[in-house]
Amino acid sequence: MPGICNLNLKSFDLNLLRVLDMLLREQNVSRAAERLALSQPTVSNALARLRSLFDDPLLVRVGRHMQPTSRALALEGPIRAALQQIEQTLNAGETFDPRLSQQQVRIALTDFVEQLCMPPLLARLGELAPNLRIDVAHLAPSLPAELLDRGELDMVLGRFEEVPARFTRRAWHSETLRLAVRKQHPLAHDTLTLDDFLGLRHLWVSGGQSRGMVDQWLGKQGLSRKIVYTTPNYLQAAHLVAHSDLSVVLPTQLANQFAQLLPLQVFELPFDVGSFHLELVYLAQRQHEPALAWLIEQILAVRPA
């Protein structure tokens, strides 16, 4: 581990590494203290000791934030990996009791996947693990590998094209697409043709992507549609379409749910773009952590039919 090899481990307080790890995560003494359940002076004193031991400021104040030095950045990965290895070793063979667990698990999702997964999962956890805490973060289009590596996320559930080999990926659900317009839309028919589709004014749920499945298919045919509004939010998209003459392409499960709640009419697309696949992804080295392994099985158990 860079920087530690020259220190005397017999006299080194390994608890300081937990403090340094949290300071590098939060880059803020107060937040680090809160997450460590320590007082702010205790964390400040630990930082002073770390600076002396490593003969480096480690974190320097820039405006209202603390910025890691190059030495701290070099230490961050090895220290975090070592702490995770220690935790996994200590937890090996540990019996996990979901009824008593107060574990905090961080998952990144899109609002579509949250709507699909969380209602049945929370109902299940309410019975089996009432004190387990789920924190959801917004999922960008690409896999947040660095956040998973640093332990800032425990797992992600979404659609990914490339997943590095150090991660485990579990199939969760395959989904198709449907078109939704408001009921009584002037271009709504019993069946929808390609010309009808191209004649609509479209709202596009981007999810941070530059081009979705529909536009990729149209582009291959030398066609394009008229997009007049873009949003990253499926829920907002459905409400906007229900009260306008816009149309929106939605995942089938979500389109059917919204059609039960809002004045929407759902159509099959007049062309076949295939399906997309949602996967649960997490660091392979963490798959034997009792709480994480248990929760993974619960998420797999609530896969849509």
Rank of each mutant, 00 (worst) to 15 (best):
D272W: 00
Q40S: 10
L246P: 10
L58C: 07
L295D: 12
H202T: 07
R124P: 01
P98V: 10
E127Y: 05
H277M: 06
L139A: 09
L254N: 12
V273P: 02
A301C: 08
L139Q: 10
E114D: 14
F271Q: 03
Q27D: 08
L53Y: 03
P2M: 11
Q85N: 02
A32V: 04
A48F: 05
A145E: 14
S206T: 15
Y234G: 08
V214A: 14
D272N: 14
Y234P: 04
T89H: 08
G274S: 12
G199D: 11
S52I: 05
E114G: 13
A301P: 04
V273F: 00
Q115P: 01
V19K: 00
V205H: 05
E297H: 13
L59S: 06
S11W: 07
S206I: 04
C5H: 13
E76G: 00
R225V: 06
Y229L: 15
E94F: 11
L132C: 01
E26R: 14
A74T: 07
A82H: 00
E34G: 00
M22V: 02
W204S: 12
L187N: 15
V105K: 04
E297M: 01
T231D: 02
S11K: 12
A301M: 06
V249E: 10
L240P: 01
V62W: 01
L261T: 10
V281S: 04
T176E: 06
P304E: 14
P57C: 07
